[in-house]
Design a protein around this nucleic acid. Structure first.
Length: 589
RNA sequence: GGUCCCGUGGUGCAGCAUGGCCCAGCACGCGGCCCUGUCAAGGCCGAGAUCGCCGGUUCGAAUCCGGUCGGGACCGCCA
C-alpha cells in the first residue's frame, strides 16, 4: 500500500469522472442518513465528498458507520458526477463525488480539542498546545504554502542575480552590544560559552573579504529580548551582502525581489521605484521610523506657532528644549470627550507628558491669534480637531506616531488593500541613547557618508550614514547599510563609540585583521522574512507564520520548553544553577 | 522592569458594573436512537463545568478585594 502517488482530495474535477481512484486523508465530516453515508475527506489540497452506499458496497458502508472526525482513512472508489441538483458550488470539487467501494481506517482519532474547520479560532494557548492540529486548518496550511513559495522564489531570484547561498555558524561568539544573546555552555571549555547568532552580520562581511562577492542566506537569527506581535525570539532573515555595490544597487535588487514575490503570490504589481524618506522626515511627519503610508495624516511641528505662548503646558516643555507637535484630525470636531480621554490614556501609556487638544481645555490659555497660527501650521481645515503634544523630541515623536496610528485606525483612514512601500534613507550614523550617550544608529560597521566625514569628531550627530530601512504599511521589513571597509575608519568609529582598545581587539580583532588583506567595498541588507510572509498572508501576528512558535513569554506550550535538565547534563557543562532559580520551576502548561 | 485586556463543560461565547432569581445559560461539538442525496444534513433523547488557582470580605461570591498562574496587546528593550 502506497498512497504516495494518490491524487489530492481537493484536486478532483468533472474531468476525472469515471476514474477509479484511491484517496488518502482525514475525515472532515460525516453525514449519516441511515442508509447513505456522506463523508468529506480532507488533505492539504482540499476536500471531496465520498459516498458510502449500503446497496452497492455494504462492507465499506459498515466500516463508514464507525468513522469519526479526524480518522485517517484510505478510500478506494470511482469518481462520479453528482446527481443533477446536488452539486455544491461552494466546494472546488463540488461537481463530483467518490463512490466508495473500499474503506480502510489507517488511524483513529480522539475527538479533537477544537474543531479543525471551525470558523472561530480557539484561544492562542490552545492552538499552541496542539499546534499539530492547529496547522491542519486550511488557513495555516495556506500560510505554510506561502512561506514555502516565498523561500523558493527567493532562492530562484537571487540565484539568477548571481548570489551564492552560504551557511554560517549557529554556534558563534557573544557580542555584548546589541540585543541580549542566547548562550550555549561549552563542555570542553569550562566557563566559556558560545552565543547563538543575532544575525550573521560579521560572517557575511568576512565572506566579502573571502571573495564571495554576492552572498545570501535564509538565516535564523536569535535575540533574547521581549516579544511583540511582530517580533519573535527566533526569526528568519533573508541575509544578503554584495561587493562593489552602492545603495542604489541594493534598492534595485530588493525592489525587484519584492515585486516578484507580490506578483507571484498575490498577483499584484508593486509600484516602483519606492519613495524615499529621510529618517528625520519620517520621525517628524509620521512619528515613527516605520510609517504606514496608507494613511495620509501627517504630523506637523508647531513650535513656531506657539513660541511665545502663555500656556503653561506648552511653555514649560518648550523652555526645557522640547518640541510641540500637532495632528489635525479631519472632521475631528465630532470626537467625544470619552474618545479624547482614551487617546490621552494612550499618550500617557507611551510615557508621554500628556495630550491636549483644540478646541479643548487649552482654548482659554491661547490667544485667538495663536489658535489661528496653530491651525495654519498643522494644516487644519474647518471642522478639524487638533491634537497637541509638547514634550522632549523623542517622546513627542513617539506619542504622536501612536496617536496618528490610533486615530487612523478608529476613523478608518487607512486605505485597505494598498501596499505602500518606502525606503527610510538616509539615516544618521549616531544616535543618543537614554543616558544621553552617543551610540550607533544602525550598527557599528555602518559607513558614514563621505561628505559628512569631517563632522565625525566635532558634530557626530550630524553625520549621515549609508544606512537604509525598507518599510511597508507600518512594518519595518528590512534594514541594511553600506559597510566600512577601511580599517582605520572602522577603528575611528569604534573609538567615537567609546570602545576601549582592548574591547575592540577582543571583540572585533578578527574583522579588523581581515580588513588588512584587501577588502572589497561592500554593503547589504537583511529583510525579515516572517514579516513579509505576514503581509502576504494578511495576518498581524508573527506566530501565525511560524510553524512552531513560542508564546509571548517564550515558552513552547507543545514541547514544554524551556525545561529543567538532568543534573548530570549540567555537571558535564560545568554549570551550577543558583538556588533561588531552582525553586521557580515552570508550571506544566 | 512597567501598563492594560482576557481566563466560565471539549471549543466559542452570555452572565460579572447593581452578590442571593445561577448546584450557571446559549451555540457548536460529544454519546445513543431514527432517517437513502446531504454538504454547518435533519429529528428525538442524553451526558458533560463547583466559573484558572490560592486566600479574603460577606449570612451568602462566577460576580467584590488581594495574591498567584496562564494567554494576549503595548511601553521600556529589540546593534
Amino acid at each position: 500500500m502506497s498512497g504516495f502517488s494518490a491524487p489530492g482530495c481537493g484536486t478532483l474535477r468533472a474531468a476525472d469522472v469515471g476514474r477509479r481512484v484511491e484517496l488518502y486523508g482525514w475525515v472532515a465530516r460525516r453525514r449519516d442518513h441511515g442508509g447513505l453515508i456522506f463523508c468529506d475527506l480532507r488533505d492539504r489540497s482540499g476536500r471531496v465528498q465520498v459516498t458510502f452506499n449500503p446497496a452497492t458496497a455494504p462492507a465499506a458502508h459498515a466500516t463508514a458507520e464507525g468513522l469519526r472526525a479526524e480518522y485517517v482513512v484510505r478510500v478506494g472508489g470511482t469518481v462520479q458526477r453528482r446527481p443533477e441538483g446536488s452539486e455544491n458550488r461552494a466546494l472546488a470539487t463540488g461537481e463530483v463525488e467518490v463512490a466508495a467501494v473500499e474503506l480502510e481506517v489507517l488511524s483513529v482519532s480522539r475527538t479533537p480539542p477544537f474543531p479543525i474547520d471551525g470558523e472561530r479560532e480557539p484561544e492562542e494557548s490552545v492552538r499552541l498546545r496542539y499546534r499539530y492540529l492547529d496547522l491542519r486548518r486550511q488557513r495555516m496550511q495556506h500560510i505554510l504554502e506561502v512561506r514555502h513559495r516565498v523561500n523558493r522564489i527567493t532562492r530562484d531570484y537571487f540565484d539568477r542575480l548571481g548570489f551564492r547561498e552560504v551557511e554560517t555558524p549557529i554556534l558563534t561568539k557573544a557580542t555584548p552590544e546589541g540585543a541580549r544573546d542566547f548562550l550555549v555552555p561549552s563542555r570542553l571549555y569550562p566557563g566559556r560559552f558560545y552565543a547563538l547568532p543575532q544575525s550573521p552580520q560579521q560572517m557575511k562581511q568576512l565572506l566579502m573579504v573571502a571573495g564571495v562577492q554576492r552572498y545570501y542566506q535564509i538565516a535564523r537569527c536569535l535575540r533574547d529580548e521581549d516579544l511583540r506581535a511582530d517580533r519573535a525570539a527566533e526569526f528568519t532573515q533573508l541575509d544578503l551582502e554584495c561587493s562593489f555595490c552602492d545603495e542604489e544597487d541594493i534598492f534595485e535588487v530588493i525592489e525587484g525581489w519584492i515585486a516578484e514575490l507580490w506578483r507571484e503570490i498575490l498577483g499584484v504589481e508593486v509600484a516602483r521605484p519606492w519613495p524615499r524618506l529621510s529618517m528625520s522626515e519620517s520621525l517628524l511627519r509620521y512619528g515613527t521610523d516605520k510609517p504606514d503610508l496608507r494613511c495620509e495624516l501627517e504630523i506637523a511641528d508647531v513650535g513656531e506657532a506657539v513660541a511665545r505662548t502663555e500656556a503653561r503646558v506648552l511653555r514649560s516643555a518648550l523652555e526645557a528644549g522640547g518640541v510641540a507637535r500637532a495632528l489635525a484630525v479631519p472632521g475631528g470636531m465630532d470626537m467625544s470627550r470619552r474618545e479624547l480621554a482614551e487617546l490621552e490614556a494612550l499618550a500617557r501609556g507611551a510615557g508621554g507628558a500628556g495630550l491636549t487638544w483644540l478646541p479643548g481645555p487649552l482654548d482659554r490659555h491661547l490667544s485667538l491669534e495663536e489658535q489661528a497660527r496653530l491651525q495654519e501650521a498643522a494644516g487644519a481645515r474647518p471642522g478639524d480637531r487638533l491634537l497637541l503634544v509638547a514634550d522632549r523630541k523623542r517622546r513627542a515623536e513617539r506619542v504622536m506616531g501612536l496617536l496618528r496610528q490610533e486615530v487612523a485606525r478608529r476613523r478608518g483612514l487607512v486605505k485597505e488593500g494598498a501596499w505602500r512601500f518606502c525606503w527610510i534613507y538616509p539615516m544618521m550614523l549616531f544616535e543618543e541613547d537614554d543616558q544621553g550617550n552617543l551610540t550607533y544608529g544602525h550598527h557599528p560597521f555602518t559607513r558614514p557618508m563621505e561628505q559628512d566625514l569631517h563632522l565625525v569628531e566635532e558634530r557626530p550627530y550630524e553625520v549621515r550614514a549609508h544606512a537604509y530601512d525598507f518599510v511597508c504599511n507600518g512594518y519595518e521589513l528590512g534594514s541594511g547599510s553600506l559597510r566600512i571597509h577601511d580599517r582605520a575608519l572602522q577603528e575611528r568609529v569604534f573609538e567615537i563609540l567609546g570602545l576601549e582598545a582592548e574591547t575592540i581587539r577582543s571583540r572585533f580583532g578578527h574583522l579588523l585583521e581581515a580588513f588588512e588583506y584587501g577588502v572589497p567595498p561592500h554593503g547589504g541588507i537583511a529583510p525579515g522574512l516572517d514579516r513579509i510572509v505576514m503581509l502576504l498572508c494578511g495576518t498581524d501576528n508573527i506566530r501565525d507564520v511560524v510553524a512552531f512558535p513560542k508564546t509571548q513569554s517564550m515558552q513552547d506550550l507543545m514541547m514544554d520548553a524551556p525545561s529543567p535538565v538532568d543534573p548530570a547534563q549540567l555537571r558535564e557543562l560545568h554549570i551550577q544553577v543558583a538556588p533561588e532559580a531552582v525553586s521557580g520551576a515552570l508550571p506544566r502548561p
